[in-house]
Design a protein around this nucleic acid. Structure first.
Lengths: 221, 221
DNA sequence: TAGATTGTTAATCGATTAACAATC
DNA sequence: TAGATTGTTAATCGATTAACAATC
């Protein structure tokens, strides 16, 4: 089966999807430094993967290198950008204008890469009308109507846990194709909607686990 | 090899570590609902894992169930809490009091579970002295001295990318055992320090990737 | 006791890596 | 051309799952 053949048929494994952004970040850095050539061995060294894994990952999407040379940084970066969907503009709505919502809304990287927050919603009457990053904050009651009039790719959920599923349902009903969830809730979405979670507490618990694992190992010795 | 034998010897696989916080979250919910019994089949159904995987995961740490009955929710939750290290208090410092830093600092869940932010640092003179969550913000120049006087378990990095590695080095030198990194930087830490990243941009890129993957699949049909 | 469900072993599946022919 | 490095195949490794004896 050819690489191109695989592209349309099989789903890309989780592991590969997880590494693509890492490649993107590093290639961006190399490009900024003016490096114009890189081999899979060099990439592997820098990112702590094996060279074989990098070549294997990239081959899911095509043949971007040249035997005896390696990869052209600018060209590979462009390919990875396209693979990640950064050649398209994405429209977003942000629900929840609390601390996390504000932090997300003010991250300029997103906008620079084509992820445009078109509207912000909150339930707190005191916040309504405030301008945040060029966006007026609207009442969450307007969300349904807004989505009817403004087709939206991605809904960001930055509400408390209790509100998250209801907001998620509204977003799905309103036709978003992806949900970026910052609440600690375990959300239910239909198969056709992509759910990506940032579970801060899970992350801290993994860290905590590994700390005690280390401790116990140290004691055991 | 017995389960208890494994505990001290082998490292716990990534996958298991990733699922433990999910078990913890769901068991907490069950306990709050007053449920007192649960089987691996029921857990699997609710969390979308196989029953065998849940039993296998738990068996790394011991035998917490009873044949013919299942698991006692309260008891299992307590065990998982201990496994995750939630039976210990953890001291933290937060570096970076911008939007993300403020969001993290105001998450009350952390404190409730024993993760206490003891000090906050920033480089902006305008912020120094401000009180945030009961903590005065100090200048980052004091970080080294602070860590000398206050042994600290975990350092949180919520600075811009450019400052992250330098802060990381200071934290490591100051003796923290874990780093919780919110900057987009790819940090270098020595083997004995645990690094846990929240890479927001990677998360958004994974979502973006899966959206275009879907699109292309839809077109292909 | 009969029914249910654990903890663990063996079988399966999938992902990673080593090796190498192809070729720049 | 000789040296280097790709893309891919086959071998290896590890994680998941099915099955079941043990037993509450």
């Amino acid at each position: 089966m050819t690489a191109r053949g695989r592209k349309k048929r099989d789903a890309i494994p989780q592991g590969v999807v997880g590494r693509l952004p890492v490649y993107f970040r590093y290639l961006t850095e190399l490009a900024a430094q003016g490096v114009d050539k890189v081999s899979s061995a060099q990439l592997g060294e820098a990112l702590d993967f094996t060279a074989a894994q990098i070549r294997s990952d990239l081959s899911y999407f095509g043949s971007f290198g040249q035997q005896g040379y390696g990869y052209n940084v600018g060209e590979l970066l462009q390919q990875v950008r396209n693979i990640l969907g950064l050649d398209k503009r994405h429209s977003l709505v942000l629900v929840g204008a609390g601390n996390i919502g504000k932090a997300i809304g003010s991250y300029s990287w997103f906008r620079a890469e084509g992820f445009i927050i078109e509207a912000i919603f909150d339930i707190d009457p005191h916040l309504i009308g405030n301008i945040h990053g060029g966006c007026a904050i609207r009442h969450v009651d307007e969300l349904r109507q807004y989505l009817r009039n403004h087709p939206t790719d991605i809904g960001i959920i930055a509400t408390p846990k209790e509100a998250a599923q209801a907001i998620c349902d509204l977003l799905v009903e309103g036709g978003v194709r992806g949900i970026w969830n910052f609440s600690p809730a375990q959300l239910d979405v239909p198969d056709e909607v992509i759910l990506e979670n940032i579970h801060l507490t899970d992350s801290l618990l993994r860290l905590s686990f590994r700390l005690s694992e280390r401790e116990q190992r140290a004691e055991g010795e």
